[in-house]
Design a binder for these strands. Sequence first.
DNA 1: CGTGGCTGTCATCGA
DNA 2: TTTCGATGACAGCCA
Length: 819
Amino acid sequence: MLYLKKYFTEGLIQFTILLSLLGVRVDLDTYLSNQLPPLREIILGPSSAYTQTQFHNLRNTLDGYGIHPKSVDLDHFFTTRRLLNQVRQLDRLSVPSPELNTWLVHRDSETVVSASSQSSATITLDNGAGLEDVDSPDAAPAMRGGSGEPESTYNLNAADSSLGAVAPEGNQEQGTRDGNDDLTKEDIDLIDILWRQDIDLGAGREVFNYSNRQKESEEEKPSPQESKDRNKEQESWRNGVNVQGAQPVDGETGESIPEQLPALGSQTSLSLQECLRLLEATFPFGEESEFPAPVVTPETAVTTDEVPSTSQAVPLAPQPPPAEPQLDLEQQWQDIMAIMELQAMEVNITSPQTDSGSVSGTSEATDSNSTGSFGLAPRPTPVNQDVSLHQASLPSCSQDFPQIFGPQLDTVSIPPRTPMLRLASNNSTNINATFGATNLTGIFLPQHINSSSSNVTSTPILPDPFSTLLEESMLDEISLLDLAMEEGFSQAQASQLEDELDSDSGLSLDSSHSPASPSSSETSCSSAASSSSTSATFSEEGAVGYSTDSEVTTVEPEEGAVGGYQPGYSKLCRMSYQDPSQFHSLPQLDSISHNHTYNLPLSSAFDEHPELPISSVKKSVRDKSSSKLQAAHDLLDKHASRDERRARSMKIPFSNEKIINLPVEEFNELLAKHHLSEPQLALIRDIRRRGKNKMAAQNCRKRKLDTIINLEDGVQDLRRNKARLLKEKMEFIRSIRQMKQKMQSLYQEVFTQLRDEEGRPYPPSEYSLQYSADGSVLIMPRCMTAAEQSRKPEKKQKDKKKSGSQIPGFSSRFESSRT
DNA sequence: CGTGGCTGTCATCGA
DNA sequence: TTTCGATGACAGCCA
C-alpha cells in the first residue's frame, strides 16, 4: 500500500506539473495577447467551446436523433461519452468540473436568486477580468435572465468557466441524464442550429472535436455578432438543458440534479472494467488520489441553504440528515481555515485592505460560524463554484470575483498606481480564493461530504473510497503543492502584497514613487520641459555667462576660434549630448525626461558658431525667446559670472567659452598667440578649470537624476512584472484547482457507477479505488486502506489536523466509518 | 525668515 | 606627471 501511495503521490505531482505547464501556456496567452483571451477561456471560454463541441458530438453521435433522447442507451452512451470527454479534457488546462454545473442547476430556485443578486459582483469578475467576452454580457442575461447586468454572468459563467471543461460535459451529462427525459426536440433543434452555425463559420466536422473546437474557439474568435448569437443560443441551450439550475426553474430540466444521482445509481451504465479503464486513461501516470464526490454537494448546500429549494430537496434521493452535513461543513470549514491559515495569512494580510477581499474574508469567517455550508462557499471562490459551495458561495464569489478580475483588467489598462493597488487586492483576494479553493479541502472536503451525502444514496455515510488516498495523496500533495506554491507566493506575493499595501499607505518604494513618483516623473518631465525652457534661458545665460564679455569678445573669438572650436564642440556634444534643441526635435526623449540643460553653456558657443548644425535649432529657440534673451543679456551683463567679470577686468582677449571649450592643444596655441601676463594666464586657467568643472558638475547632476529616474522606472517595471507573475500564478492555481475538481468528480463518478457481481453499488464508505503498481485499478475495501493509513501515522495526523477531528473530513470520516 | 532646489565652485580621486 | 572627467561637499542665489 505504501508503494501504492507513493505511486499516487508521484502521479499527483506529475499531474500538478502538467497542469502548471498548461497553465503557463495559458497565462502567456493572457499576457502576451491582450490578456483577455486566456482569462476568458478560463472563465467562459472553455464552457462555450465545450458546449459547442458537445453539441456537435452529440449530434454526430446521435446522427439525426438516431437515438431517442430518453432511451436508456442514450443515457449510457452519453455517460460513456462524457467520461471519455472528461478524460480527454484532462489534457486541457481549463477543466471545470461538469458535474458541478448540474448541481448548480438544481439550486436554481434558491441559488439563482441569491446568485444573481449577489453574483452581480461576481459577474464583474468575469467582465472585470477583462474577459469581457462577447459572451459574458450576453450569457449573463441569457443565463440568469434576471440580472441583465453583464456581471451577473458570473454565476453561470463562473460555473461554466470554472466548470468550463465541464460545461460541455455537463451538457452532455444533462443531455444523457436529463436529456433522456428533458432533451426535447427543441433542444435538439437548437443543437442542430448551433452545429450548422459552426459549419457556416467554416468549421468542419473535425472541428467539432472537442480539442479542435476549443482551439478554434480560442484562436479565431467569430465576429462579435455571431459569437454573441451563438453564445446566446448556447446559453439558452444550457439554461434549458444544462444549466437549468441556473435559471430559476427550467421547465425542462428542473429536476436535473436529483435525477442525476438516481440515474447514476440506476444505470449500470459502465461496467467496472470500463470505469477502471477510464480512470486509467484519465490518470495514466497511475497517480490516484481520492476524489471526493463533488456531485453530491448540492445536498449539503441545500441543507445549509436558508431557502429550501424544492427542486433540490426533491431530487436528491437519500439525503443525509441536514444537521450532520452542516456540522461537517462547519468543521471542515474550520479545518480548512486552519489548514489555510499559513497560506491565508499571507494572502489575507492583504485582503483586509481590499474592499471585497476583506469583506469576503470576514464574511467567510462569520459564515463559517453561522452556516457551515456558507462558510465553505465563500472560500471556494470562483473556481469553487462547486455545487455545494455554490449557493452559499455565490455571494462570496461575487464579491471575490469582481475584485479579482475587475482589478486585473484595470491593471492592464489602468495607470500603474491604482492598478497596482487593485492588483494587490485582487491578488490577495485571488489568492485567498484560490488557495482557499485549492487547499481547500473546501473543494474536496465539502464536496466530499456532499458526495458522501449524495452517495448516500447508495451508502449513507460515505467515507470516501479514496478518502485515504485523498487525504494523503490529494490533500497532502495538493496542500503541499499549494504550500510550495504559496511559499513562492508568500515570498514574492506576500512581499508584493506588502508592497502594494505599503504603496497604499505610501510607505513602499512605490509609495515614494507614487507620492514622489509623480514628482519624480514630473521632475523628469519638468526637467525635460524645463530643459527646453531652461535651455533657452540657459543658453542665453551660458552665452552670457561666458560670452557676456564675449559680447564684446565674441566677435573676435569667433574668427579665430572657429577652426579649433568645432572639435571641441563636437567632443562636448558627444560627451554631454546635452543639446536642448536635439531634445526638442525628439519629443520621445522628453518622456524619458532627461535633463539636458547642463551643457547649455555650450549653446553660447554655438551661438558664436552658427555653422554648427545645432546652431540652427538653437536659433529657432532663440528667436522664440529673443526678447527674453535680450533681457537676459542685460541681466547677464549685470550678473556676468565672476570669471567673466574677472576676465573682462583682466582684459583677457578671448571669451571664456573659448577658454573653457577649446581643446588643450588649441587652448595652448591660443595662449601662445597672445602674449599674456602671468595673472592673466592664471585667470584663464582658472576660468577654464572652473568652466570645465561646472559642466562636469552639471553632467554629473544630470546623470544622477537620470539614474534615479531609471531606477524608478525599473522599480515600476519590476512591480508590474511581479504583479503579472502573481496573476499568472493565480491562474495556474485556479487551473490546478479545476483539475482537482475534475479528478474528484471523475473518481466519484466512476466509483458511483461501479457495481458488484450482483449489480449492487459499492458503498464508498466501505470501498475505495486504488491503483496498483502495475497501473490497474482495484476496488479495495476500506479496512485495507485503513491499514495502509495506519502505516503512516504522521500523514494521518497531518490529515487529521487538516480535516479536523470533528469534521467529516476524509480521514476522520473514514475512521468513524471503519470503526 | 526659513527652507528647498538649483547652480557654481572647490577639492579630490582615478583614468 | 599632466590632463581631464567625475563626484562629494559647500556656499550662494532664488522662489
